[in-house]
């Protein structure tokens, strides 16, 4: 067990190191850098002015030196300075994390709230009209682009309430968060709920066919008790996995949803930073996402092993 854990952690470190190299190199392949952006933004194409800015920001140094500086800084918790705002990158990124985290958390909450029971119902009522309806709904959840769903929600909100939720950082508290993030969270959570519903359904079906369920039924346990107490508990394992993985993959959905609803979270910030070639922001944000994904994958594996005795620690 101990050796396996160490091996896993080393592999994680290796993956993150590889990611840092990949993103660093890829960003430098993007045409145009921050010096281009800053001069082009004010309509200048003068090479001298550009060189001055490039020197000031240190992007004229050899790429290895730049990489070393970044990683060296990271080791001390120093993420460097954002090019555009000229503030410490940490101060730019940190306040945006809770916004996205809240949104993702609410989205997952909605996803589980709807996905899990509907999945169970769909499995229990297999091949009925209700099952077909629920399957179509869940499949449409995987088919609707979340930005389009967001637009429809906005249009409906305008139609019915005559207004739209505009994010305001000065409003704090639980209900303020719900009123500002509720709709976006449902929009982005729809996909996840569809996925959870499908998976719950299929793993429920699997479990319902098992002998011990039949036994429980034949012993006269009530159908509800069987379905929810015995079957669901056993069907939950793969569902927990997918919830974990979905939490990481929500980041993709957050990017478009934060754009549509104008929410100043980290996900939208990433796209803006890419467009501005704000390397310190992009690099660190990408690493943040990678750390989240890798950690969740690790935790999911651990949970799997803890919950399922059939899986051995040998790789």
């Amino acid at each position: 067990m101990g050796a396996y854990l160490i091996r896993r952690l080393l592999l994680m470190a290796l993956t993150l190191f590889g990611m840092s190299v990949l993103i660093f190199v890829m960003l430098r392949l993007v045409p145009g850098d921050i010096a281009d952006i800053l001069t082009n933004a004010s309509g200048i194409s003068d090479a001298k002015e550009k060189a001055k800015i490039a020197h000031e920001l240190g992007i004229d140094q050899p790429i290895l030196v730049q990489y070393g500086k970044w990683i060296g800084g990271l080791a001390h918790g120093d993420l460097g300075y954002a090019y555009v705002s000229e503030q410490p990158a940490l101060d730019e990124i940190l306040p945006r994390i809770p916004i996205s985290a809240k949104l993702a958390g609410m989205a997952l909450f909605f996803a589980v709230l709807f996905g899990l029971p509907l999945g169970v119902i769909s499995a229990v009522r297999q091949n009925t009209r209700l099952d077909y309806l629920l399957r179509v709904v869940s499949l449409s959840g995987l088919s609707l682009p979340s930005f389009w769903l967001g637009l429809l929600v906005l249009m409906a909100s305008v139609q019915w309430f005559g207004m739209i939720p505009i994010y305001d950082a000065d409003r704090t508290g639980f209900w303020a968060s719900v009123s500002m993030l509720g709709l976006p969270a449902m929009t982005v959570g729809f996909r996840s709920s569809a996925l959870i519903m499908r998976l719950t359904r299929s793993s429920m079906l699997e479990v319902l066919r098992q002998d011990y369920i039949r036994t429980a039924r034949s012993k006269g346990a009530s159908i509800v008790a069987v379905n929810f107490k015995h079957a669901l508990r056993n069907a939950l394992l793969p569902v927990v996995t997918v919830i974990g993985i979905e939490a990481a993959f929500l980041v993709g959905g957050l990017i478009v949803t934060e754009t549509v609803f104008n929410i100043p979270g980290v996900a939208r910030f990433l796209v803006e930073a890419i467009l501005w070639r704000d390397y310190p922001i992009v690099q660190n944000l990408v690493m943040l996402i990678a750390v989240v994904v890798v950690t969740i994958n690790f935790l999911v594996d651990m949970a799997y092993m803890a919950l399922d005795p059939r899986i051995k620690f040998a790789d």
């Binding site: 045409p31 145009g32 850098d33 281009d36 952006i37 082009n40 309509g43 194409s45 501005w276």
Partner: peptide
Amino acid sequence: IDSSVWYNKIA
């Protein structure tokens, strides 16, 4: 053309 390199390209 990406805004970042628009004037470079023209120049």
